[in-house]
Nucleic acid binder design. Structure first.
Lengths: 96, 96
DNA sequence: TTTATATATGAACAGATATTCATATAGATA
DNA sequence: TATCTATATGAATATCTGTTCATATATAAA
């Protein structure tokens, strides 16, 4: 493979940086197979509501999750299959 | 997929954290198909020798690269195919 | 319309991280 | 041995990042 240009290099680093935090990994983990509202996410992982919300914003900004409103709640899910793939590959590597 | 335990979650985050830096991405990039000595790496990417060395240490500690001495030089290469896979998957995602 | 619930957000703070600079180490060569 | 080249490393510094706390916003329910 050829040498990536600087922009692409930075974009890749930014992408991995998002996966490089325990709270965000936990959030992605619980969203792998379901959509969940913030409240449910907060209950499933051991992190404060505020921290979850802050991290969801980062995931949202990076377009790694999507969401919709339903009444009082906001349901989040993974943006596309790529997110799951990256997660699973990381998971595999970590098992060794 | 089930909920990962905390240790595994942290390990995964640590793994991705290592990919989450431009300098390290550049280093992995030039090592994708070749082994190179520090000097060659430094020449190929636009980063100081010291910074390259510091980052190689991090990659080394995480067992993402391996190396051997030959005379004056130390040759680095990717530790296994997983590293390349993760890199390529990130690269694909970044193209979209 | 008052109250309760769900979510988001800004400020402040603490901890982590990457680079630079200076220098150490070690092997090779003169 | 003295010198040159390749690599590593520690300290200092600046920047970035994640959490907490307090609070705002918005919808729902009473």
């Amino acid at each position: 493979m050829e040498l990536l240009d600087d922009d692409k290099t930075i974009d890749m680093a930014e992408l991995f940086k998002i996966f490089g935090d325990s709270t965000r990994i936990k959030i992605i983990n619980v969203l792998l197979d379901n959509e969940l509202c913030v409240c449910e996410i907060t209950n499933k992982i051991n992190v404060s509501q505020s921290a979850v919300s802050h991290q969801l914003r980062i995931l949202k900004t990076a377009k790694l999750v999507k969401y919709y409103k339903k009444g009082n709640c906001i349901y989040y899910s993974l943006a596309d299959d790529h997110v799951k793939k990256i997660f699973m590959l990381g998971s595999e590597h970590t098992n060794e």
